[in-house]
Amino acid sequence: MSGRSARLLRAVLVPVIVLVVWEVVSRTGAISAIIMPAPSRVVVRWWDYAASGEMLQDAAGSLYRVLGGFAIGAGLALPLGLLMGAKEWVNQLFDPLLQILRPIPPIAFIPLAILWFGLGNPPAFFLIALGAFFPVLVNTIAGVRHVDAIHLRAARNLGASEWTIFRRVILPSAMPYVLSGMRIGIGVAFIVVIVAEMTAVNQGLGYRILEAREYFWSDKIIAGMITIGIIGLVIDGVMGRISARLLRWHRGLEG
């Protein structure tokens, strides 16, 4: 057997065994279908969920909140991070407050968010923006500070003004950091949206799986979880693609 097919076989072996055992155990009734519904039932339920159009609506709602909240959070963090990285006095102004707020998980803001913004999209946007804000901020500051001194000297030597240096040297050399901050940020945003929908929004994927629990539809819970997983994978893949495209010059420079 060639190395490749052997590797493929090893890769699928454990998942297939798990699924088969799970199916058999559920079918024999050894475990209640409410605790662990058979995978075949989950697949059927997932298909129903998709075919009814409900999944598309939920996914669209969650995605809308993720992107909206992320745009707000990253949109505030990016300019602030650039300023804090470039100007020490701005850093001294904002750093203490941000250091106090940063360790508080965004989820801990849920009660306040509901008090401030009520229910629905506004508190979700707030929480997601908060979740995306810090990874983008911290990475942007690091990116600006890690600009190579030799590039600054070269630019100055070629007659570049401070503004040109900021725009054409500091900004692009901070880009790898900014983009990895955004990738982390959107991952956090996706976690926060599910929790926000479980508490403050009555729509979306997070709301749907919590709703299914009330009816003991464990097959639908798992179907919803699978959908969440797929969307998370797609978001991360898209972010990876955008990064790779913007950082063509960077590939292979670092691990």
């Binding site: 030799i150 590039h151 000297r153 070269a154 630019a155 030597n157 070629l158 054409r168 040297v169 692009p172 050399s173 880009m175 010059w249 960077h250 420079l253």
Partner: peptide
């Protein structure tokens, strides 16, 4: 104009 040992080209 300066030429550096480390080239100092802008990698982007």
């Amino acid at each position: 104009a300066m030429v550096f040992q480390e080239y100092a080209l802008f990698p982007w």
